[in-house]
Design a binder for these strands. Structure first.
Length: 803
RNA sequence: GCCCGGGUGGCGGAAUAGGCAGACGCGUUGGGCUUAAAACCCAAUGGCCUACCAGAGGCCGUGAGGGUUCGACUCCCUCCCCGGGCACCA
C-alpha cells in the first residue's frame, strides 16, 4: 500500500495554479533578491527528459528554500523555440513550426507543472514570439550601428544534409553536430559579428566568476590567447615582404625556412615561374577540402615556391614553402619554420629534407639530446645571445628587431568572429535590406519586429540560400532610403541569438518600449545562480557573455557579467550506464516514473542519486528507497496526530536541531544528496518515538523544498490555509547542539580501542583519567609504557606508547 | 600529445583546515505477516580468521608502490586505470 500521491499532487498543483501562481511571483524592488535561473529548454517533440528534471528540481529546491528564508526570488522559465530540429521535423512532417511548436511548449509546461516546479509563469517568454524577437533584432541592429556586424564572403562549412551553413562551433570532428554528416566547403556571403573585439575582456573577466574551473578553462582555451612578435622577412628579388607571427622569438636563429598558408595572398603571387604549375596544383587540391578534413590528413603536405626570404638577423637564404599546416586565419598566416624546436616544423623539415638547426638547449653550451626540443632553455648557436635563457632572449631579440623596424609585439587569439547567418526559415529574420543603389540599409526601430512570414512551403533552396529567398512577397521591398526596388536579407539568425539575452527579458517580459527597464535590471542583475548542462560551456555561455558585455558598453545593463555562479548538472545515463537514446532503448521517461511513484519521489530520487555535478546512471531499483521514505513519512504522520507530547524528548530536540542546520547548509551548498540522507536518518531515529506536532511540522518544512506536494498536504492537516512557501524556514537552536554530550574516541597508537561519552566542555585531564580507568584500555596498556597523549577537543584521545 | 575531473563494499554513494572508513539508499540473506505472492515490518550484511551455551575478539582493507605523521581515503613523490574537454593556433 502506498500513500495517495496522485490525489495529493493533483490537488496541490491545481491550487498552486489557481490564482496565476501568485505564490511564486517575484516582486520588483522588494527586499533582498535572488535570481535563480535554469537554462531554458528547446521544446522538442520528445518532451522533458530526466536530465531536465535533475537541473530543474535543483533550482526549484533553491527557489523554495530562499522564499522561506525571506528572499524575493526570481525563478522564471521560457522556451528556446527557434532552431534546426524544429525545422527539420517540419520538413519531414510537412508541417509549419508555427503550428506545432506551441503544442510542444504546452506539453513541456504541463510536465513542469506535473513536477511541481515553482516557476513564476507570469514571466514566461518564448524566443519565437515577435514581441520577444523584436528585441533580438533590435540588439542586432545596435551591433550593426556600432560596427560589430559585417558581411564577408567566407569559405563556410556546409552540411549537405541540413543544407545550411554551420558555425565552427556546430561541427564535431568534421561532421555536422546535428545530423553527423561530413561537412563540405562552400563560399557564401555571411554576416559576421565581431566577437573577437571582446576577446580580451571575455578572457580577463573569467577571473571574477564563480564558475566550475573546467568551464573557465574551456573558455580560456577557446579564446586561446598568445603573445609574441610579428617579424618581417624580406623576399629575395622582390619588393614583397612576409610578416610572420611567433611566440618563440628565442628560436629565430634556428629558422631554416618560411611557410605560407595556402590562402595567403603571397602564395599565388610570389612563386618562381618554374614552380607555378606545382603551386597551383597544390592549392587547387587543398582549397576545395573543408578545413576539418584537411586537419585530419595524416601526412603533412607542402610545395616549394622557388623563392627565398632573407633572415633578418643572419642574412641567410630561407626557402619559402606553402603548406596547409599553417592556418591563414590565425596569426599572420605565415610562420618561420624552426624544425629543431617545433614538432610540426620538424615533421615538415624531415619530409622535405630541410635544414634542422638547434638553437635552444636545456643546458648551457650543450646541444639538446633529442629533437625537436620544444621547452624553454638556454640559447646556443645564436651569436651574441648564446647562454641567455629563452625568456630573456625573447626580450632582447625583440628589442633589437623592434629598433630596426623589423618586428613588433603582437597578440593573437584563436577565437574567430561569429558567423551569424543561417540559411534557414525557422529563425529570427535579419533586419537588413539590400538595395542595389544604397547598399545595406538597416530597418528602423519602428519597423521592428520584422516578422517571419507564414508560408506553406519553405524547403531549403539547396543552393545554400535561405528558403525565405523564394518567398517573393516577403523578400521584395522598397528601399527605405531611395524607394527603389530592393530585397530583404534572406538569412536568419542562429539559435544562439535568442538565448543570448533571455535572462534579461524575464526581468521585464511585457515591456514594449524597451527590452527591459533599467531600474528593474539594476535590481535583479546579475543572475545569482545559473544551472544547466556542461554542453554549453563554450557556445551559449560565451555568446551570452559577449552579448551582455556589448549591452553593458551601451549602458543598457548594469553589470559587465551576466551570471555570477554557474553549476553544471552531470548527465544521467541509462540503467546500462550508456547515454540515454531511443536507439539503445534505455530512455527513462519521467512521465512514467511520475505515474508510478509520483513527482515527489522522482524529484527526490534524482537529487538523492549523487552529487548534482556528477555523471550518474539511473538505477531502476534505487528509486524505491525514496518512495519508501515518503511512505514512511505519510504513515508516521498519522501517528503524530494522535500523540500528545507534553515535553519533547531532549534527544529528539537535539537531533532535530542538528537536522535543521544540516539541511540548510546542504541546500546552500547544493549538496542535496546528503541533505536527503540526513532527513532519512532523522526519520529512522524518530520512527519508534513520540514527537510533538511542533517538531514534526518543523521537519515537514525541511522536507518541503524537496517534496513539496506531500509536505504541503501534511502541513495542511494542521494549518488549513497556510502555504509552506510563505512560512519561515526554521532556525536551529545552536546552544542546544553545542551543549550535547560528546563521544570521544580513545585510540592507542592511532587505532580505535574504545569510546566514552563526556560533557562537551571536558578537557584532557578529565578525559585522560576516565580513559585510563576503562577495562578495555587497561588491557591494551598492560606491559606498555605511555609516551604521550594526543588530544583533539570533542574528538579523540590518542595514547601513544613506547616500543 | 596537452589540460581538467576521478578511482572507497555486490551497486549508487558518505566521510577531506589529517582524527570512529563504509552514513543514507539499493541489492542480498534470514525471520515475521500471508493459503500464496507482492507490499509491509524486524534482523544481519567490507574481506579473512579465532571463539561460541552465551557474550566476544584479532588481522587486513579507500587503484598500485613508497614517504611524512602519534594518526593518512584526505598531504608529498612515482606509476597504473577510467571519464570529459582541446588538439597542426606557430
Amino acid at each position: 500500500m502506498s500513500y495517495p500521491f496522485k490525489k495529493i499532487e493533483k490537488k496541490w498543483q491545481k491550487i498552486w495554479k489557481k490564482n496565476k501562481y501568485k505564490l511564486w511571483q517575484a516582486q520588483d524592488f522588494k527586499g533582498k533578491k535572488i535570481y535563480i535561473l535554469d537554462m531554458f529548454p528547446y521544446p522538442s517533440g520528445e518532451g522533458l527528459h530526466v536530465g531536465h528534471v535533475e537541473g530543474y528540481t535543483a533550482t526549484d529546491i533553491l527557489a523554495r528554500y530562499y522564499r522561506m528564508r525571506g528572499y524575493n526570488v526570481l525563478h522564471p522559465m521560457g522556451w528556446d523555440a527557434f532552431g534546426l530540429p524544429a525545422e527539420n521535423y517540419a520538413l519531414k512532417m510537412k508541417k509549419n513550426p508555427m503550428t506545432f511548436v506551441p503544442k510542444n511548449i504546452k506539453r513541456y509546461k504541463k510536465q513542469m507543472e506535473m513536477l511541481g516546479l515553482s516557476y513564476d509563469w507570469n514571466r514566461e517568454i518564448n524566443t519565437t514570439d515577435p514581441n520577444y524577437y523584436k528585441w533580438t533584432q533590435w540588439m542586432f541592429l545596435k551591433m550593426y550601428e556600432k560596427g560589430l556586424v559585417y558581411e564577408k564572403t567566407a569559405p563556410i562549412n556546409f552540411c549537405p544534409s541540413c543544407k545550411t551553413g554551420l558555425a565552427n562551433e556546430e561541427i564535431v570532428n568534421g561532421r555536422c553536430e546535428r545530423c553527423n554528416t561530413p561537412t563540405q566547403i562552400k563560399y557564401l556571403n555571411q554576416w559576421h559579428i565581431r566577437i573577437t573585439a571582446y576577446a580580451e575582456r571575455l578572457l580577463q573577466d573569467l577571473e571574477k566568476l564563480d564558475w566550475p574551473e573546467n568551464v573557465k578553462t574551456m573558455q580560456r582555451n577557446w579564446i586561446g590567447k598568445s603573445e609574441g612578435y610579428e617579424v618581417t622577412f624580406k623576399i629575395l628579388g622582390s619588393d614583397e615582404e612576409i610578416n610572420i607571427f611567433t611566440t618563440r622569438l628565442d628560436t629565430i636563429f634556428g629558422a631554416t625556412f618560411i611557410v605560407l598558408a595556402p590562402e595567403h595572398p603571397l602564395s599565388t603571387k610570389i612563386p618562381e615561374e618554374d614552380y607555378i604549375f606545382n603551386v597551383e596544383n597544390y592549392l587547387e587540391n587543398i582549397l576545395k577540402k573543408p578545413e576539418r578534413e584537411r586537419k585530419m590528413e595524416e601526412e603533412i603536405s607542402g610545395v616549394f615556391t622557388g623563392r627565398f626570404a632573407v633572415h633578418p638577423l643572419t642574412g641567410e637564404k630561407l626557402p619559402i614553402w606553402i603548406s596547409d599546416y599553417v592556418f591563414y586565419y590565425y596569426g599572420t598566416g605565415a610562420i618561420m619554420g624552426v624544425p629543431a624546436h617545433d614538432a610540426r616544423d620538424y615533421r615538415f623539415a624531415k619530409k622535405f629534407d630541410l635544414k634542422i638547426k638547434p638553437v635552444v638547449s636545456p643546458e648551457k653550451n650543450k646541444e639538446p639530446q633529442s629533437l625537436p626540443f620544444e621547452d624553454y632553455g638556454y640559447l646556443i648557436n645564436s651569436f651574441d645571445y648564446d647562454g641567455l635563457d629563452s625568456k630573456t632572449a625573447i626580450e632582447e631579440i625583440g628589442k633589437f628587431l623592434e629598433e630596426k623596424g623589423l618586428a613588433k609585439k603582437a597578440v593573437y587569439y584563436k577565437l574567430r568572429d561569429w558567423i551569424f547567418s543561417r540559411q534557414r526559415y525557422w529563425g529570427e529574420p535579419i533586419p537588413l535590406i539590400k538595395c542595389p543603389k544604397c547598399g545595406i540599409v538597416p530597418l528602423s526601430e519602428k519597423e521592428l519586429p520584422l516578422k517571419l512570414p507564414k508560408v506553406k512551403s519553405y524547403e531549403p533552396t539547396g543552393t545554400g540560400e535561405s528558403p525565405l529567398k523564394n518567398i517573393k512577397k516577403w523578400i521584395k521591398v522598397k528601399c527605405p532610403k531611395c524607394k527603389g526596388d530592393a530585397e530583404r536579407e534572406s538569412h536568419t539568425m542562429p539559435q544562439w541569438a535568442g538565448s543570448c539575452w533571455y535572462y534579461l527579458r524575464y526581468i521585464d517580459p511585457k515591456n514594449n518600449k524597451e527590452f527591459a527597464n533599467f531600474k528593474k535590471l539594476k535590481y535583479w542583475l546579475p543572475v545569482d545562480i545559473y544551472v544547466g548542462g556542461v554542453e554549453h560551456a563554450v557556445l551559449h555561455l560565451l555568446y551570452a557573455r559577449f552579448w551582455h558585455k556589448f549591452l553593458y558598453d551601451l549602458n543598457l545593463v548594469p553589470t559587465d557579467e551576466p551570471f555570477t555562479k554557474l553549476v553544471n548538472q552531470g548527465i544521467i545515463l541509462g540503467p546500462d550506464r550508456e547515454k540515454m537514446s531511443k536507439s539503445r532503448g534505455n530512455v527513462i521517461n519521467p512521465d512514467e516514473i511520475v505515474q508510478k511513484y509520483g513527482a515527489d519521489t522522482l524529484r527526490m530520487y534524482e537529487m538523492f542519486m549523487g552529487p548534482l555535478e556528477d555523471v550518474k546512471s539511473w538505477d531502476t531499483h534505487g528509486i524505491i528507497g525514496v518512495f519508501r521514505f515518503l511512505n514512511k513519512i505519510w504513515e508516521y504522520n498519522k501517528k503524530v496526530k494522535k500523540y500528545k507530547v507534553e515535553k519533547e524528548n531532549l534527544e529528539v530536540k537535539i537531533n532535530l536541531n542538528k537536522l535543521i542546520k544540516k539541511v540548510a547548509e546542504d541546500i546552500e551548498a547544493m549538496k542535496f544528496n546528503t541533505a536527503i540522507s540526513s532527513m532519512m536518518e532523522f526519520m529512522n531515529f524518530v520512527y519508534d518515538k513520540k514527537i510533538s506536532i511542533k517538531s514534526w511540522l518543523t521537519f515537514i518544512k525541511l522536507l518541503f523544498p524537496f517534496a513539496p506536494h506531500i509536505a504541503q498536504e501534511i502541513y495542511s492537516h494542521y494549518y488549513k490555509n497556510k502555504f509552506l512557501d510563505r512560512e519561515k524556514w526554521p532556525l536551529p537552536d545552536l546552544k542546544l547542539i553545542s551543549e550535547e554530550e560528546r563521544k570521544i574516541i580513545i585510540e592507542i597508537n592511532g587505532k580505535k580501542r574504545d569510546e566514552i561519552l563526556v560533557p562537551s566542555d571536558y578537557q584532557i585531564e578529565e578525559i585522560k583519567k576516565l580513559a585510563l580507568e576503562r577495562e578495555k584500555i587497561k588491557k591494551f596498556l598492560q606491559n606498555k609504557t605511555i609516551e604521550k597523549f594526543i588530544f583533539v577537543q570533542n574528538k579523540i584521545l590518542n595514547i601513544v606508547t613506547k616500543d
